[in-house]
Design a protein around this nucleic acid. Structure first.
Lengths: 146, 146
DNA sequence: GTATAAAAAGACAAAAAAGTCTTTAAATAA
DNA sequence: TTATTTAAAGACTTTTTTGTCTTTTTATAC
């Protein structure tokens, strides 16, 4: 299960993407309100994204967050890795420190299948994919858009 | 991802099962040592299991933990539910409070598939299944058994 | 230039999870 | 009966995660 920080990050970045498509650069107040996440905590998470070049920002009047239109699509796994690291995709299913294909825990194989599927999903899904679904009405972020 | 408490619980209960098959009722000191988990924390987790009737114990000299041989096989999901609840199997993939089939988050369907597979795995896997694998040498708990 | 509006930064606080310590209760062996 | 061994119980501590508050920096508008 993702940390709250990762969840907020994904929701925030989807929101930013949607607004950017209308040439708007939202600020963290608006973002946190719309994705229903704590304001300052959202700000801090977005700072982390900016520091790690997943996202850009401008300060001052009329500032806000935005994506470089030139940059390649951002995958969920990149965000997760930035916010909480990769342990979700590497950790043993029952917490053995030295579980591996050669010395597997008794649920290793079955767990690895599921864990790898999740890794595939987060690798193949981009923030743009999610934004598309919101805009097409296939999915919901929280509030409605207009 | 499971909490550490759930991981320790599963490992401890597998260990107890294996020892019980040799008519031995291990204590929490031995258990925690063998599964490489903190001693008192393991004791507390086992207490929770006993209180919730997943497991039995006897106090005093020669006491320890054991399973009622009459009781039906214990599944992983029962243990997880006892230790940390079911949120792992119900929570939205990006943390939306009101994500559902009718108002799905943009990754709802794909995430639900994986989450349900994990639920199936933990529902269909019993502590005995894991113990069997250890004994047959297909899997490893941590130290070797003899 | 000055006021204003925004993100950045960092210290701080609260909550949750993980882990420890000490005392009590219960069972057995002697 | 008494000593010993074991689990139970509960208070306590530490660490991690989550969240807040205050100040600083930077950009823009006037």
């Amino acid at each position: 299960m993702l940390s709250k920080a990762s969840e907020y990050a994904i929701r925030a970045l989807v929101y930013i993407t949607i607004k950017n498509r209308d040439a708007v650069r939202p600020g963290y107040r608006e973002i946190s309100r719309e994705i229903e996440a704590p304001e300052q905590f959202t700000a801090k998470i977005l700072q982390t994204c900016v520091r790690n070049k997943l996202l850009q920002s401008v300060r001052g009047r009329g500032g806000g967050f935005f994506f470089d239109p030139e940059s390649k699509p951002l995958t969920l796994i990149e965000i997760i890795n930035t916010i909480e690291g990769m342990s979700l995709f590497t950790r043993c299913g029952i917490g053995l420190s030295k579980c591996s294909d050669t010395a597997p825990c008794p649920i290793h194989k079955e767990y690895a299948v599921i864990r790898d599927q999740y890794q595939q999903l987060t690798t193949n899904t981009t923030i743009d994919n999610l934004a598309d679904k919101i805009i097409s009405g296939e999915g919901v972020l929280n509030r409605m858009f207009n």
